[in-house]
Simulated assay, not measured.
Amino acid sequence: MLGLPDHVEACLFDLDGVLTNTATVHAAAWKEMFDDFLENWASRSGEPFVPFDLGRDYAEYVDGLPRADGVRAFLDSRHIRIPAGTPDDPPSALTVNALGTRKNLLVQKRIAKDGVEVYQGSVTYLQELVDRNLPRAVVSSSANAAEVLRVTGLDKLIDTVVDGQTAAREKLAGKPAPDTFLAGARLLGVAAGQAAVFEDALAGVQAGQAGEFGFVVGVNRLDSEHADGLRAHGADTVVSDLADLLAPSGPGSGQA
């Protein structure tokens, strides 16, 4: 009924793009921050201004990664080198951490203004897990995960959270390393092989594969190319919506 193998005893969910539509909010914030930076960089360096590409740069370099890692990966792709700085850098500083802080401020501003959309199919699936007493955790790179869960009411359907703040505090490597998912499994009291990972990001399904989790569900909200990428990076199955897993014929009926 849940579209999962029998050995799965707990579920670990990414937040953005899996439970909520905040992935589009994050993508827009990344573009706004990077385009502003790139314009200023072009004017100083004399190099042409090439905007951040939502269709390519977001998925390839920043989606699912901790903020600083995403900033660093994208800048590396443009052969731009700036100091790493520290998390305490003001957003106006010219450092990797400062750019990450700018992006986070833009996300918070957009969430406060527009709210957060929840995928109804994900709510249905979470409620089914609650009814069947399967433990549930959110594992997100976002430092705002707990607030998003509270605002949307999803916190009532989740047992525990591992987020960007947890990773920083416990010095956990971000996705595609499996560390944060492994921490989520520990909090739920299960081994990795007994847990299913639900991810929409390439780095996230890669983390599920690297951690040898019992099942990795890729959630494709984009297109067939992204679905193929999810499979190539470690997804055991790919669905367009979590409710597809509840179909009588299992996840195959909803594969993207």
Rank of each mutant, 00 (worst) to 15 (best):
T86W: 02
K156A: 14
L242Y: 05
R169H: 05
E199T: 09
A183M: 07
L230C: 00
V239W: 02
L4T: 02
V148E: 15
D200M: 03
P51V: 10
F198N: 00
L2M: 06
D223M: 12
L154F: 07
S77A: 15
A232G: 07
R78K: 14
V130I: 09
G100A: 10
D114K: 05
V71P: 05
G3V: 05
A137Y: 06
G55D: 15
A191C: 02
D36Y: 09
R44L: 14
M1D: 13
R231W: 04
F49E: 04
D200L: 03
S141H: 07
P48F: 09
P66G: 12
V148D: 11
L99M: 15
V219T: 03
T86G: 03
V130Y: 03
G189E: 10
R72G: 09
F37D: 01
A143T: 14
Q209L: 09
A185F: 00
L12S: 12
R44I: 10
L202T: 06
L75C: 08
I111V: 15
G229E: 01
F213L: 06
R186L: 07
L129R: 10
T22R: 12
T95S: 08
E128W: 02
G229D: 00
S122T: 09
D16H: 06
P135E: 01
E32N: 10
